[in-house]
Amino acid sequence: MATIYIDDKAVEATPGDSLLSVCLKNGIYVPHLCYLEELKETPASCRLCFVEVEGEPAPVTACTTMVREDLRVRTDTPEVRRLQRAALRLLLSVHRVDCGRCPANKHCDLQRIAALLGTGLKPKNLALLLREPQVVRVHPLFDYYPNRCVLCGRCVRLCRERHAMPLLTFADRGFSTTVTFYGQGNSEEIPCADCRACVKACPVAALWPRDSDAPVPGGEEEPSPNTAGSDPAEAGP
């Protein structure tokens, strides 16, 4: 075991473990979206879990920092917060903020991070860049909402981990990158109904079981009383 110092608090940790994991286990919340405790490899793609490590000239991502003896870490310096706010605002600039009608409401990681950083859910002075269509209905059971998705890739990695023949993947590139269920037609032949790992792991309800009665987001309908603001745990899978 090694002793490391997170915000001046001494913490015992196993060398080689990810710093983010240690922070989370010790009740120190560091904003993050792409990291998943159960998967060994981290993509370090959401760029939220920045911390300052003594000896490093600039903030580093906690998920890729390995525990070593005498590591000294600060999780809330102005520079760390500045980068985290910037990343969050960028994510919000491609996010359709419609919490009232979103099943992730009150359990949404974006809401949690925004609350911690005190930014609100507006992208500030960035242009709002939304995509068409609002909902992609290709999979027989699940819908994909591109304007909720933060492209953290939890779903893609979990599916790859659980199934020899993954059912969803990233497609396209750059700003057009999307998550796709390309080629999945028949609900009888796929294990999705029993697995649902992708839906459960999604931090923002961008993948959600199809409910044909639910209003299509972005549609003109008023929020229906049984979905707006309801507890997603009840409506969840």
Binding site: A44, R47, L129, R173, G174
Partner: peptide, 21 residues
């Protein structure tokens, strides 16, 4: 760069696009 960004990380994927805007 915006077109050639791989799309993996937040800053490059959305940041370069916002700069371009």
């Amino acid at each position: 760069t915006q077109k050639e960004s791989c799309g993996k990380c937040t800053f490059c994927r959305i940041g370069t696009r916002q700069i371009l805007e």
